[in-house]
Write a protein that binds this DNA or RNA. Structure first.
Lengths: 199, 199, 199, 199
DNA sequence: CATGAATGAGCATTCATTCAT
DNA sequence: TATGAATGAATGCTCATTCAT
């Protein structure tokens, strides 16, 4: 009668726990998101939790992994776009889309606070690098086509686009008047302003 | 008639602990900054810590209080400036100055992760409000003088300036290539760009 | 469908901890009965302790609860007795029985020292009230049948019976020559003396 | 200019601290009566406290010492009385007098809870022994004169008188309706009842 | 003498993790 | 596989006591 794992069910449940964790971590921060609270939210026993994740930190790592996947997918999505500025716009749109999940801001804050943990730092850095690389390619291309200013290095421009994106997420999280719907377009404008120079 | 408290020494020591705490909290985050670690950094006994702060959270509150004082002082500093854009520039310069302390970024992250705590949330909101109000006044004045765009409300513009400032701090903390010296001028430029439109 | 809680085992373990606590508290007093000492006595880990009781004080409350149950049971036991004096005698016998547990005296002392704690005070008052009420009913009945003196109010008589009972417990605890076996009968006699007057 | 101790002032202050301690200990119990609270009550600095008492426990010991002195004084007071029953009555009266200080009951409870401490146990036992001895002498004398029952050993009778006295104190402390004024005479009656047999 | 700042041992409690069922 | 009872290391905090002024 011993049936081995149903991988589908396993993955489904794993994602269910991740989703619950996202909710709890975004609301309380990583340290205050106790495994007990996550299990309650996910309606599972604590034992089950550790069936799916060897340790609490691995749950965080799994979420970051998912983020890395998203970047890979985004990279594929924009691959076929011709116009560099359009591609970058698409990347920014993706952030705006993601920011619609009200948990994202809180989660990003939460993760930032655990950067000490070497494993988290590594995962985060990989994520960061992937995102920067994606931007870097399109910015460099834009510079080559003359659509993006060249008085700043592509690397610096990446940092500034990231600055806008991070700042955007933070404002969304911090200020209830600052809504994705209203400010999303402004973000696009600001990114374009940074890339073309403010004049 | 015995010697009683020397308020000077008391305040000095208090600031010493706060300084040590700033270091540890910035490096590890609030939760992981154990009182033991802070005491070690400050070279004091645990009893001494609680002699100066009734609870760990009050230390955090004290630091935020210091931040509120800084805002008040900044407000006084710019009071006499005539040109609104110059005043705003001065405010941005202050941030750039503050950001030279490499701990600030980590500390801001750390605080963001504890916003759950009602007392911290209240203090943070007060801080935030003070900063926004200061900006708001000068932005509104700038709008009246026609130096600042008026197609966006002053409130929204405040949010965008804050977005740039928060994002700047985050990049400073996250990216070692992103230095205050090099990017400070760019921040001023970006703020001006936001306020005048990126035409 | 995994095995869930076995309520029987849970209750058993809970009582085991309570029993250990009774020993330690009686010996050292409540404050000096550290949770660590109780855990050692019960041969459990500190985590287990707090698995069964949310806080140390709740353990004390649980013990007092048990006492309240005993009073309820005693009330039921004497319910069918006809003769008021016999019923009161039965109540006194119960105390004498309980006093055979050498820990009782120490425990009573220990509890008395924690009466500051509001929750403890409330529980203790409830206990006290239950005991007084039980006595009161039978004393009043005894007064109506003429077996109990009526020159003192039933309430005052209750206080005096309680005085004897509390004093008895205290002597048992304090004086090794004062044994339940030898002095129990004398207590019965003294109670009867109080109720009928010492002519 | 160095003047040595003024013994009068020293003793005065010492008693002042003891008085404050009595208040605090009676209200909170010994463990919860922090030295800080006692110092606050006595309006002295914590350093001063330890000038007068080497350790907190020594304060308790000093209070018990005072109790022992009272017994000695009581012994002297009754020395000249002829009638044993009158002498015993005088001893009981002393208790009733002492019980007028509403702190006594709480203090007795508090001390009972610290009996673990060997030094306290020793002091308490000395106190206890002194009181018992005083009673014993007069009870034995009463037995010899035929005024006190002889079917119980003098030692047992002592225990019973103590039982009444302890129980009286406890009721005073526990029951606000049970007042010294009203119940004092009843205590005298009860003691007499115990000594002569309840018939 | 009087003071209170400084100390650290000791305590209650939390929480990630293990494991028998 | 899923569960939750059991665990103990780690943490924030209290408080008696010391000592320089």
């Amino acid at each position: 009668m011993a049936r081995t794992v149903d991988p589908r069910r396993h993955e489904e449940r794993r994602l269910h726990i991740i989703d619950a964790a996202l909710t709890v971590i975004a609301a309380r921060g990583y340290e205050r998101a106790t495994t007990a609270a996550i299990c309650r939210e996910a309606r599972i026993g604590s034992g089950t939790f550790f069936h799916y994740f060897p340790a609490k930190v691995d749950l965080l790592l799994a979420i970051l992994e998912l983020g890395a996947d998203d970047v890979a997918q985004l990279r594929a999505t924009v691959e076929d776009i011709e116009d560099p500025l359009a591609a970058i716009s698409r990347i920014v749109d993706q952030l705006i889309d993601d920011a619609s999940d009200p948990r994202l801001g809180g989660f990003v804050r939460a993760v930032a606070a655990v950067m000490t943990e070497p494993k988290v730092a590594a995962a985060l850095e990989a994520d960061e690098r992937a995102q920067r690389e994606l931007l870097l390619e399109w910015l460099a291309r834009g510079q080559r086509t003359g659509q993006v200013r060249t008085d700043l290095s592509a690397e610096r421009l990446v940092s500034w686009v990231r600055l806008l994106m991070d700042g955007f997420l933070e404002q969304i999280a911090a200020d209830s008047e600052f809504t994705v719907e209203q400010e999303g377009p402004m973000l696009r404008e600001a990114v374009r302003g940074v890339l073309t120079g403010f004049v």
